[in-house]
Computed example of a mutant assay.
Amino acid sequence: MTPTDVTRTDTTSTGETVLVIGGTGKTGRRTVARLRELGVETRSASRSGDTLFDWADRTTWRPALDGADAVYLVPLDTSPSPTPAFVEQAVAAGVRRLVLLSARGVDVPGYFGSSYEDGGPHAEGEKAVRSSGAAWTILRPGWFAQNFSEGVFLDGIRAGELALPAGEGSAAFVDADDIAAVAVAALTEDGHDGEVYELSGPRALGIADVLDEIAKVTGTRAAYVPVEESVFRAGLVAQGLSEEEAVLWTDAMRPIRTSQEAPVTDGVRRALGRPPRDIADFVRDAATEGAWN
Rank of each mutant, 00 (worst) to 15 (best):
T2V: 13
P3Q: 12
P3I: 05
P3C: 06
T4P: 12
D5W: 10
S13A: 14
T14N: 02
T14C: 01
G15T: 01
G15D: 00
G23T: 05
K26R: 14
T27S: 14
T31M: 05
E37V: 13
L38V: 06
T42N: 08
G49F: 01
D50K: 01
D50I: 01
D50R: 03
L52V: 13
W61I: 02
R62G: 09
D66R: 00
G67V: 03
D69C: 06
P80E: 10
S81F: 08
S81L: 05
P84I: 13
V87Y: 03
A90Q: 05
R96C: 05
R104H: 15
G110A: 09
Y111N: 06
G120H: 11
G120D: 11
H122T: 11
V129S: 04
R130L: 10
S131M: 13
S132R: 12
S132K: 06
W143V: 15
F144P: 12
F148V: 02
E150N: 15
E150V: 09
L154V: 11
D155A: 09
L162A: 03
L164P: 06
D178C: 05
I179E: 13
I179A: 06
V184Y: 02
A185V: 04
L187I: 01
E198Q: 14
A204I: 08
G206V: 03
I207D: 00
D209L: 14
L211T: 01
V225F: 00
E229C: 04
G240H: 05
E244H: 13
E245L: 07
A252G: 09
Q260W: 15
T265D: 13
L272Q: 07
G273D: 09
G273A: 05
R274A: 10
D278R: 15
V283I: 13
A287R: 05
A287C: 07
A291W: 08
